[in-house]
Design a binder for these strands. Structure first.
Length: 486
RNA sequence: GGCGACGUACCCAAGUGGCUAAGGGAGAGGUCUGCAAAACCUUUAUUCGCCGGUUCGAAUCCGGCCGUCGCCUCCA
């Protein structure tokens, strides 16, 4: 498949401007996104991040690129408090749940994928685990020691930021800034407070430990991403994504390690998504103001959540509230109704084809323009609703040829389902329970007779009672239809 | 204290120099309907936190002020 002609621009955090995307290898995109640390259920903030990058990957595929999408699972080395002290998050959770650390990892990795599957986030091509790449991390640490970028103290190995002059280029900080901004007094082992751990010595009570040339220990958090990205994508690759809060220090450290070890540029484009806020404050694990995806799915459908998130740009914050989510749900409902209308409209004599083709082409153009402009999904949604407004009267007139209808159906599906990942959830007449269908049909027939006899009281009673049980009845000019409440 | 964002209608949210400031929700009016719901149509910011400046022209650029937030500890 050839690449669609386009002019995709991406806001590169490294240069702080939008740049035309040029892949390292023609027709191929390598992308690495920081994955979750699996010590708890994912929340809506994770949903925003991974839905955003899901759409990025989907759009590249839509354009015809072969994409390799790598997203790590952090199951070791992520410490609880300041960068290089405190307990491992997984281990803390393991104590809490009285489980083996790897049971915790397994439980929340599954939970994460359950949630992502529900939200129609495509699985990464590779989901490498930090604990499965200990030899690679030891090897990289050795390389950095040999090249003089790192030093060992008492079984700990630290990266020396002074040896890597470009440290700070992503986050726009100088070593001076970092020094003056340090709020936490850090371990006395370090030569410079800004130095970060490549390898940590394991205390006797530390469970997750591996043998290394420096004694038993475990890898520093930043190291896994450097190792696994280069292993699967090469020392230099196209895109590195992640949450804005990881710009410093995590991504800064990744760059330093990788470029020092490989003497090659690391990721060429850095993409950072912004967060979900609640009353203007970041939704985060430590603040306790988060809503887990599982919780949100109790009262909202997966696509409502997805639609809500796509309604703001990935680099903008998105303020969460029940009102805002409800608003999104209604909009998504309307989009689906139109989808049904488009699917079910019978063809006609084709006299409106010209006008319809014109609004379809406009949609195509607006879609490409919006996505090419740093994946502007809110503008895509706006274009879709503009299209709905213009297309509806033409559909209702019924003078469109089958060929023209099909072409538009395909485009609409490509935009909404293939790229935005919004799959219809309306299941009108699609209840699989044959017996239940039959019973409902009988009840509706009964109600029709009452309506003919103008027994409005009974007719309305039946309608209300069915509604209470999630069966919605509507009397349309074409007859009574029913559907399950979504 | 350092680094960096943001402030657009009742809510969510696009727009970063120039036609009438997208879109969704909510509200209002209407078509349809026994009623309802759904759907559809119409409508709702002379104005973009405030004050100056640059410009023929600014929500959009510059300066100041006010406010909110993120990172500098773990966080998507």
């Amino acid at each position: 498949m050839s690449i669609k002609k386009n002019n995709l621009t991406i806001f590169n955090s490294l240069t702080r401007k939008k740049e035309v995307f040029e892949p390292l290898h023609p027709g191929f995109v390598g992308i690495y996104v920081c994955g979750p640390t699996v010590y708890g259920d994912s929340h809506l903030g994770h949903a925003k991040s991974y839905i955003s990058f899901d759409v990025v990957v989907r759009y590249f595929r839509y354009l015809g690129y072969k994409v390799r999408y790598v997203q790590n699972i952090t199951d070791v080395g992520h410490l609880q408090s300041d960068a290089d002290e405190g307990d491992d998050k997984i281990q803390v959770q393991a104590r809490l749940e009285r489980l083996e650390p790897m049971e915790v990892v397994e439980r929340y990795t599954r939970s994460y994928f359950e949630d992502m599957d529900a939200l129609n986030v495509l699985r990464p091509d590779i989901s490498p685990r930090a604990s499965g790449h200990i030899p690679e991390q030891i090897e990289m640490t050795q390389t950095l020691l040999e090249k003089g970028y790192a030093y060992e103290v008492n079984g700990n190995v630290y990266f020396s930021v002074e040896k890597y002059p470009a440290y700070g280029k992503l986050s726009g900080r100088s070593l001076e800034d970092i020094k003056s901004g340090t709020r936490v007094e850090v371990a006395g082992d370090k030569k410079n407070p800004a130095d970060f751990a490549l390898w940590k010595k394991a205390d006797p009570e530390h469970i997750m430990r591996w043998k290394s040339p420096w004694g038993e220990g475990y890898p520093g958090w930043h190291l896994e991403c450097s190792c696994m990205s280069s292993k699967y994508l090469g020392d230099t690759f196209d895109i590195h994504g992640g949450g804005m809060e990881n710009k410093f220090p995590h991504h800064e450290c990744e760059i330093a390690q990788s470029e020092a070890a490989h003497d090659k540029p690391f990721a060429r484009y850095w993409m950072h998504n912004n967060m979900i806020t609640v009353d203007g404050v970041k939704m985060g694990k430590s603040l306790g103001n988060f809503v887990t995806i599982k919780k949100a799915l109790q009262s909202h459908s997966p696509m409502e959540i997805r639609f809500f998130i796509l309604g703001s740009h990935y680099r903008s914050t998105l303020d969460f509230s029940e009102d805002a989510l409800h608003g999104a749900a209604r909009g998504w409902q309307r989009l689906q109704k139109f989808y049904q209308k488009l699917a079910n409209t019978p063809s006609g004599n084709g006299e409106d084809d010209k006008a319809f083709v014109s609004v379809t082409e406009q949609l195509q153009q607006q879609f490409t323009q919006a996505m090419d402009d740093d994946f502007n999904t809110p503008r895509v949604l706006a274009a879709l609703f503009d299209f709905i407004k213009q297309a509806t009267p033409l559909l209702e007139k019924g003078a469109l040829s089958e060929a023209v209808l099909d072409k538009t159906r395909l485009l609409f599906k490509e935009i909404t389902q293939d790229v935005l990942g919004l799959t219809p959830e309306l299941n009108e007449d699609s209840v699989s329970d044959v017996e239940l269908n039959a019973v409902i049909e009988v009840i509706i027939g009964l109600r029709q007779r009452m309506r003919r006899e103008k027994n409005w009281e009974m007719a309305d009673y039946i309608r209300d009672e069915l509604a209470r049980r999630g069966i919605i009845i509507r009397d349309t000019p074409e007859g009574t239809v029913w559907e399950r409440q979504v």
